[in-house]
Simulated scan of single mutants.
Amino acid sequence: MKKISSFLLLCLCFVMLAGCRIQTTYKNGSVSGIVKDVITQQPIADALVVIEYLAITVKMTTDQQGHFHMDEKTGWEIVGMMDGRAPQDFQWPGFITITAKGYQTRSWLADYHIVYDYPIQLLPENSSLSYVKMELPNGQTLYYQLDSEHSPPQPPETEVFVEAG
C-alpha cells in the first residue's frame, strides 16, 4: 500500500514539475424537455432524441409522458501548460434532432445547458405546415457541417408554422 501511495505521489510531482495541468473536458451538456403533438397537445412517447456535440452523439427516447432528460457528463485530461485549447475544454452547443413515427423531424442548435420549460411541438407527417427554418448563428457552421434544418422550438403562444412548399 505504501509503495502505491509513493508511486502516485511521484507521478503527481512529475506532472507538476513538467508544467502540466489537469483540465476539465465537457463531453455533453444537460438537456431536458417534453415533446408534444402540436395539434392535440398530447405527449409523444418513444420519440428519438439525438444530440450531437462535436464528435460525441447521445441518443435517448422520450418516456410515456413525452419527457426526456440527460445529465451533463464531464471528464478530465492532463495537458501541458503551453498547449492550446482542446476541442472538449469548452461547453459547445449541441445539435438536437427529434424524430417520431408519424411526425416531421425537427432539428436545431441548442445551448450546452438547456431546459425547455415549454413543450417542443412536432407537426404530423401529413400536415401541410412545416417548421420555420432559421439561419444558424454566426460561426456555428465552422463546427457543425450538418445538412439538417435549424428550426428551434418556441413557446406555443409565439410559435409559428409555415405552409410547406
Rank of each mutant, 00 (worst) to 15 (best):
V49I: 13
P137F: 11
S32T: 09
H67R: 15
K3M: 09
T62K: 05
A47N: 06
M1D: 05
P87K: 08
T97G: 04
P119G: 07
S5T: 10
W108P: 03
L146D: 02
D147Q: 14
Q64C: 07
D117G: 04
A45I: 10
N126C: 00
Y118E: 10
H150S: 06
W92F: 05
F68Y: 12
V31S: 03
H67T: 06
M134K: 11
L10V: 04
G80W: 07
L48N: 05
E149M: 09
E77S: 13
I39Q: 08
K73R: 15
I34M: 11
S151D: 08
C20S: 10
G102K: 15
E125Q: 12
K3D: 09
K2V: 15
F161N: 12
D111F: 07
A86T: 13
I51C: 03
I34Q: 10
L12R: 04
M134F: 05
Y143H: 11
P119A: 12
P43I: 07
V162F: 02
V35M: 07
N138A: 15
F7Y: 06
E125V: 03
I96W: 01
G165T: 11
T97V: 08
E135N: 12
G94V: 11
G66H: 03
A45K: 15
H150C: 07
F14A: 08
K27A: 02
V15D: 01
Q65C: 06
M60K: 06
L129F: 08
S32K: 12
I51Y: 01
S151T: 14
E125P: 00
P152N: 09
A164I: 10
M70E: 09
D83L: 12
T24Q: 05
I120P: 02
M134P: 01
P119C: 08
I44K: 06
P155T: 05
Q104I: 14
R21M: 09
P155R: 09
L142M: 13
Y143Q: 08
N28M: 06
S127K: 11
T57W: 04
S151C: 12
H67Y: 12
Y116L: 02
C20F: 03
Y53D: 02
T158W: 01
T99C: 11
T40H: 07
P153F: 00
